[in-house]
Amino acid sequence: MTLFRRSEFIIACILFAAMIIIGLINPAFWSLDNLFGLLRSNVIIGIMALGVLVVMISGGIDVSFTAFAAAAMYLTIKLMIYMGYEGVFLPFVAATLIGLFLGAFNAFFIHTFRMIPLIVTLGTGSVVRGLLLGLVGTSVINIDKMPQQLIAFAKTDLVSLTSATGTNFGLTAMILIYLGLALVTHLFLRYTMAGRSIFALGGAPEAASRVGFNTRRTLFFVYCFAGALAGFAGLLHGSMIWLANPRDFAGLELDVIAAVVLGGASIFGGRGSVTGTLLGVFMLVMVKNSLIIMKVDTTWQRVVVGLIIIVATALTAWRDRKKLV
């Protein structure tokens, strides 16, 4: 396949064109302040998108991960406050494990009862969110109660600059975590047998099991991976915005799925790449954030996200089109 026919190349071109157009409408787009802000907004959606990408390559879909992220964030921070624990590493391990465990729950239902992933994950998402809000609590944990070490960790900047008006801004170091996870996911999908088994399962489940892949193990891995990344991203989100709100992330699953589809992944499975997803996430975040810069009323945000989903899926549907059925 030549460079020009690859979907990543097409997405990159569209992205580039969009950046030029937005820059023309408002040159403030190109300010470092704005660009650093954009990259920062990529981190959480991006980490979640990596998980959704892997699920989609396997031919499934997950709409429960936002509930898992909220649960992992809220439970971990509650526990830290309760135990008076000050630290960074262990809480992230805990949040990741909570997400992983909940993801295993998804995989169990999908595999054991052979049920459509969309319906299973709608159910598990509602169960987890309902339990979290109904039993654990609905109150927001504010900055004065948040573990200070977490906040300090998420405040780490790669570059710190002072703008002309005297305010400080910087590029968050969390972007390195995101890119690191992306690289690991990329290498895993491309160069390991387990990674290839996900593509095989998504391309043709029957064939995958005939050639000897353990489809059950692959399925469990995929949903656990998505859950673990969501749990990790959840706690990171809380640390970055300095508060833990158990109602957070509601509706974010649509944005994440839109970004992954925009990045060229096919909902039928077997197709998708980390590079495409990175570009898709950047595109979605950029368009949403730039509406304000372009002086479009924010009430139009959802319409724009919807249009992006439709256009992106129409393009991939056209690419994947088949005769008759």
Binding site: L118, L254, R302, V304, G306, L307, I309, T313, A314, A317
Partner: peptide, 16 residues
């Protein structure tokens, strides 16, 4: 377009 994604998108548009 797959029904899931098509109606996910249009749902956003209608709500929007």
């Amino acid at each position: 377009i797959t029904p899931i994604l098509a109606t996910l998108g249009t749902g956003q548009i209608f709500t929007g």
